[in-house]
């Protein structure tokens, strides 16, 4: 059986990231864009956790840094939650005012 290595996780992460990137760039609906961004966050998290588990165990100043990647993943998760909440709040606010959430038509700042 072919062993699963760090690279497997990284390729998976890259695929998820690129799909998310496409979604974030190409979609016409703000909610769909948000979904793409969430996908990218997840991809990054997968990579981080994989790094933390496959990397060499080491200690810095007596503390294990084995799980640095996981700690970072938790921070990213926090930020993603904050981003989702704020993003959706903004989408609601815009929808209320403009009755649309198509970013192409939200060009109020352009002239």
């Amino acid at each position: 059986m072919m062993p699963v290595t760090l690279n497997h996780f990284l390729v998976l992460s890259a695929m998820l990231f690129c799909i998310g990137l496409y979604g974030a760039l190409a979609k016409r609906n703000a909610v769909a864009i948000l979904m793409g961004i969430e996908l990218m966050f997840n991809a990054v998290n997968v990579a981080l956790v994989a790094f933390s588990r496959f990397g060499p165990a080491s200690t810095v100043a007596g503390q294990s840094v084995l799980l640095t990647g996981q700690a970072f993943a938790i921070f990213i998760l926090t930020v993603a939650a904050a981003e989702a909440a704020l993003g959706l709040a903004i989408i609601f606010a815009i929808y209320r005012r403009r009755e649309t959430i198509d970013p192409d038509r939200l060009n109020l700042l352009k002239w």
Partner: peptide
């Protein structure tokens, strides 16, 4: 939480943006 929020957003803004087209 996040997925539920997103679904909620989809529900609330449904009537205008029924589809999920590319830009």
């Amino acid at each position: 939480a996040i997925a539920v929020l997103i679904v909620f957003a989809v529900m609330l803004t449904h009537n205008i943006q029924a589809g999920n087209q590319e830009g």
